[in-house]
Design a binder for these strands. Structure first.
Length: 486
RNA sequence: CGGGGUGUGGCGCAGUUGGUAGCGCGCUGUGUUUGGGACGCAGAGGUCCCGGGUUCGAGUCCCGGCACCCCGACCA
């Protein structure tokens, strides 16, 4: 028993996470991975990524974006063209100095992000306002040398998509930035069942080289915040650095306005930490590689002969209905073992078929979001498909509901009471408070709370009003969330 | 990059005053089992993290590395 159990979430969230990503077969264990800080994503984990990729890619295409691919290596001089950008990334760059046995004339950086090399291409591709907007996306791996790594949450190499667009006006770029933020939020809420908060980053937390950065912030099961996606309005910073210009209707040369936006494999970490429990993962049905598993139960050959055909027929019908289905016919494992095994892997629905079911014309259906026998029900075999389809929707909604209730119970509004503010944030919960956004104010909070602002939520509870900044006491026009973060 | 911890079959661990490595799980074969983590029997599997040193002899003692985990500073 103890060999299968995982450290309870409440006891040690971090240990729970580390154990669960390995035991649920998402990644090879970090100790065995031969490259420091990098991860081996196993097939089951990669299938989750494929689900994320498909869901996002579809949304990108529907809004007019096209995929392209740019080089992994970026000339060092490109990064240096945007001062803030290179300063922000310099500490985490991997640099290639040799190739083909010779020292390179100019070192290449392994891309930490592609604003520069795509900006360079855009400068050649864009001539006229007729070429705008240019809406690109790239699915790629990037490298950022990280001191401290954790599977999915922070690794030296990770997978992501990075969108890069160029527009004729600031307003167009801003509209694009917000559109992509909305797409991320829609995906997180409706596919990953994570109730994210859309907001704007403070100047301190802004992307290196951006005019404005926006984020979707999610609350994990330990109360910490996780940035699950970002969208940046880059203003004309990169357009000026890379000479991305167009000729407008009046035949006047103009700099473009660009954006970039990304979601990474970190989203998988968000799903794990937002939904997982002491029995393992709980995957949202819309992203689960396996939505339902059929477990046939038999004692001997003669029972198997009766049970297996029924189980296989149910499996076939479920597949026909579009359910991503697996049938577990492994021999020599007890049903109990299989239940626990699939629960660890987070499969949303389980259908059990034993001799008694065959006799009664029934099957047992268990839902992953409700533990133990309460989540189990017996239904007639003819109704299994319909019930599974209904329950998959219910589980999807249930996970979002549970995560939302958890989040809301850990959010606190504070006005003018700095002691209470620090108490909340230090206690691992989220505080929403009036905030001036000044660097010194944020630095003080960081020192007192070991936390910085997460975002100014786009939906302000008292829009149009103002209140006392939690640090300076001076009137502030916006409220911001503060929380410890990953 | 600072502080702490751990490195021994695939995994989790034991290994006494230094004497040449063992347990549980898993794995292979086999038989009985199977409605919430089954059991018997028979097997396979080890550069004891790496490199030096002390010693007749090192998993054990000394020195130096490396890796991983946890806690802090930097970050999608």
């Amino acid at each position: 028993m103890s060999d299968y159990a995982v450290t309870p979430r409440s006891e040690d969230f971090s240990a729970w996470y580390n154990e669960i990503v390995v035991k649920s077969d998402l990644v090879d264990s970090p100790e065995r991975t031969p490259v420091r800080g990098c991860m081996i994503i196993k097939p089951y984990g990669y299938e989750i990524w494929e689900g994320i990729r498909n869901g996002l890619d579809q949304r990108f295409k529907a809004t007019g974006h096209q995929n392209a691919y740019f080089p992994l290596f970026i000339p060092m001089s490109f990064l240096q063209k945007e001062a803030d950008h290179v300063e922000g990334f310099a500490p985490e760059l991997a640099v290639v100095t040799h190739g083909g046995g010779k020292e390179l004339e100019e070192p290449y950086v392994v891309r930490p992000t592609s604003e520069t090399i795509i900006g360079d291409a855009m400068s050649r591709w864009i001539q006229s306002y007729r070429d705008l907007p240019l809406l690109l996306n790239q699915w790629a791996n990037v490298v950022r040398w990280e001191k401290r790594t954790r599977p999915f949450l922070r690794t030296s190499e990770f997978l992501w998509q990075e969108g890069h667009t160029a527009h004729a006006t600031f307003d167009d770029a801003q509209a694009e930035t917000m559109q992509m933020l909305d797409i991320y939020a829609d995906f997180a809420i409706n596919e990953a069942a994570i109730p994210v908060i859309k907001g704007q980053k403070s100047d301190q937390e802004r992307f290196a080289g951006a005019h404005a950065s926006y984020t979707i912030e999610a609350m994990m099961g330990d109360g910490k915040a996780l940035q699950a996606g970002t969208s940046h309005n880059l203003g004309q910073n990169f357009a000026k650095a890379f000479d991305i210009t167009y000729t407008d209707v009046n035949n006047e040369p103009q700099h473009c306005w660009t954006t970039s936006w990304g979601v990474s494999t970190r989203m998988i970490g968000a799903i794990i930490m937002a939904h997982g429990d002491d029995k393992g993962l709980r995957l949202p049905p819309r992203l689960a590689p396996i939505q339902a598993v059929v477990v046939p139960i038999w004692k001997n050959e003669s029972e198997a002969a009766v049970v297996l055909p029924v189980a296989q027929e149910l499996a076939a019908k479920l597949r026909e209905a579009g359910v991503r289905l697996h049938i577990d016919t492994r021999e020599g494992l007890s049903p109990g073992f299989k239940y626990n095994d699939w629960e660890m892997r987070g499969v949303p629905m389980r259908v059990e078929v034993g001799p008694k079911d065959v006799q009664n014309g029934t099957a047992a259906i268990a839902r992953r979001d409700i533990p133990g026998r309460e989540g189990k029900q017996f239904v007639e075999q003819s109704l299994v498909v319909a019930r599974v389809l209904t329950l998959l929707d219910e589980v999807q909604a249930g996970l979002l509901q549970q995560a939302t209730a958890f989040r809301d119970s850990h959010l606190h509004e504070v006005v003018g009471d700095y002691d209470r503010f620090t108490e909340i944030v230090r206690g691992g919960e989220w505080a929403l408070t009036w905030f001036s956004g000044e660097a010194e104010a944020e630095a003080k909070i960081k020192e007192d709370c070991q936390a910085v602002s997460r975002c100014f939520p786009l939906e302000q509870p008292y829009a149009g009003q103002s209140g006392p900044c939690i640090v300076t006491g001076k009137p502030a026009t916006r409220m911001a969330y503060f929380a410890k973060a990953y």
